[in-house]
Design a protein around this nucleic acid. Structure first.
Length: 548
DNA sequence: CTTACAATAT
DNA sequence: CATATTGTAA
């Protein structure tokens, strides 16, 4: 990527190296030339997509840009999201040229540029930046205006997204390693598991995963998170059956792992490139009876959980001092074949069974399972991120595909909230009723057109989500005793990633009819990664492109 | 403003 | 390599 302070310079570069650049991003206001003039010249002399940007969002100006041939007009505090989408312009163009090729690498290729045969994709940015407007946009920008923008963007290391897909690989690797080393997974014995884990290191995992661009650090970081997650799960389990419960806990864990595997299979392959986005439909499928609202289920789960064991929650706070990491042990159980889709099935089965009870308290035993499930979810959360973002397209498909695969939702939303919830929860007792009311109000929409709404996404919903959960809980358990409340809180923590399990439970919970209310929440949850695709942008993109 | 994630430092 | 800290994004 090349940045220029003056339009003339940019023009000269473009003329010198025709073919050396793929896209031009220009500010409307530049010291030496009007952005529209540049746009015009570029349009006349070369066939490059030009994107205009400015702090000025006045329609007349935007229109002018478009009329002069700009393929996009970005308002200045430009966000990564928007930048992620500009590659589309290049892509579209290239497609015509039959130069597809690596496009695919997509994600990163776009900004980082890989020099490959193609020279590179450079965009050159001309701009006088007015960073001023920007919020955080940073110091870097302040320094050298123009360059900074471009540089900062390109420079920044792309964050790894740990899509479901990726996470699956990760889990698989962990399990395999554990498996091999221990060699005898046969028992549930936590010990074994723990041992295995101990042996598992980022390096090995990285090797196993076989994902080229991933670094050891990435894996290490994720592993850290994963372990935390595990420990958390363990804690919960411990509480549940501190002494005897062992069995249950173990098995469940395994299941969870397996579930992941299953999901993987389901996932799309596009992912590799970058999409992690959609992937896991599997879980969702399991969850709902047909409804696409995967999220809902999660939340529901929360609800259910509370029901399950209220008392403990209290204790929870002071949970077992037990070995913190012990949790891993369970985890270690990887023994169970990772791939097992079976687990999934199991889940499903559970679902029905639970269903019946739904009424109120399903409980306990399942919990452990749930936890596991949750685990699996972990991976999902990250999806949005940059890297993946680029590729996108599939997402839309999801929406379209609705009937068949309502499932694709993303877990991630759930994940994030979990903790917050916990906190919030405490307070919740009081609020509960009110929340519920609100929640319901919202719901209506979702119900009417679940799929649509999903697409529509609810970006904001986070808060709503949480509230919704609470509501649900409340709704479910009007009485919620203090204890219950506590549980609620507790659960959330666990939740981190849970989807499937929660979903299941939720369903049960809901089935009774609560569902009607609940559903709304679910929809919200669905929102997907949608964000990537702006509706507008989306339109821009030709689906055909992807298809190709 | 908070939470959660991934990166980076220790 | 594990854990703690930091920086960001939602």
């Amino acid at each position: 990527m090349t940045t220029c302070g003056l339009a003339r310079d940019a023009l000269n570069l473009l003329r010198e190296r025709k073919g050396g650049y793929d896209i031009v991003i220009s500010d409307v206001y530049m010291p030496d030339m009007d952005g529209f003039k540049l746009l015009e010249l570029v349009g006349l002399e070369m066939d490059l997509p030009v994107i205009m940007m400015s702090v000025d969002g006045e329609t007349s100006r935007v229109m002018k840009g478009v009329q002069h041939g700009a393929c996009d007009y970005l308002l200045k505090p430009i966000r990564m999201k928007e930048l992620r989408n500009i590659w589309q312009h290049v892509f579209r163009k290239k497609i015509h040229e039959v130069r597809d090729i690596e496009i695919l690498e997509g994600n990163e290729s776009f900004q980082m540029t890989r020099n490959g045969s193609d020279q590179y994709e450079d965009g050159h940015v001309l701009c006088g930046e007015d960073l001023t407007s920007i919020n955080k946009r940073k110091h870097f920008e302040s320094k050298h205006d123009e360059k900074d923008t471009g540089d900062s963007i390109s420079t920044k290391k792309a964050r790894v997204v740990w899509s479901v897909d990726l996470h699956q690989k990760f889990v698989k690797a962990v399990n395999q390693i554990g498996f091999d080393t221990t060699s005898l997974p046969s028992f549930d014995g936590a010990m074994t598991g723990s041992v295995c884990l101990a042996e598992v290191g980022p390096k090995k995992i990285l090797d196993m995963m076989n994902v080229p661009w991933l670094t050891r650090e990435n894996v290490a970081s994720h592993l850290q998170k994963y372990r935390l997650y595990l420990s958390r799960l363990q804690k919960e389990n411990d509480f549940k059956n501190p002494a005897g419960g062992i069995k249950q806990s173990d098995s469940p864990l395994r299941d969870s792992a397996g579930s992941f595997g299953s999901q993987n299979s389901i996932n799309l392959q596009h992912n590799d490139v970058s999409n992690g986005s959609y992937i896991f439909s599997g879980s969702s499928l399991v969850v709902h009876n047909g409804d696409p609202r995967s999220h809902d289920s999660d939340r529901k789960r929360l609800v259910s959980t509370p029901v399950e064991e209220p008392k403990r929650t209290l204790t929870v706070n002071v949970p077992n001092p037990r070995i913190p990491r012990s949790s891993q042990m369970e985890f270690g159980q990887p023994l169970a074949p990772p791939q097992s889709e079976v687990d999934f099935g199991a889940l499903d089965s559970t679902f029905p069974t639970k269903y019946p009870w739904c009424g109120i308290q399903l409980k306990k035993e399942h919990n452990p399972l749930h936890l596991n499930d949750e685990f699996s979810h972990l991976p999902l959360p990250g999806q949005k991120q940059l890297t993946q973002a680029d590729y996108p397209q599939p997402a839309p498909a999801i929406s379209s595909a609705p009937s068949s695969t309502p499932s694709h939702n993303e877990y991630r939303s759930n994940v994030n909230h979990a903790r917050s919830t916990a906190i919030a929860v405490d307070s919740s007792p009081i609020q509960t009723k009110t929340d519920v009311a609100n929640h319901q109000a919202v719901e209506p929409n979702s119900k009417s057109t679940p799929s649509l709404e999903n697409q529509g996404f609810n970006m904001n919903s986070i808060t709503e989500f949480e509230s919704s959960r609470k509501n649900i809980n409340l709704g479910m358990l009007p009485f919620t005793t203090l204890e219950e409340d506590l549980q609620v809180c507790w659960v959330p923590g666990d939740c981190y990633m849970n989807l499937g399990l929660q979903n299941i439970e939720v369903l049960e919970y809901f089935d009774p009819g609560l569902i009607t209310d609940v559903p709304v929440n679910l929809n919200d949850g669905l929102r997907f990664d949608y964000e990537f695709y702006d509706p507008t942008e989306y339109s821009l993109i030709d689906q055909s492109l992807f298809i190709a």
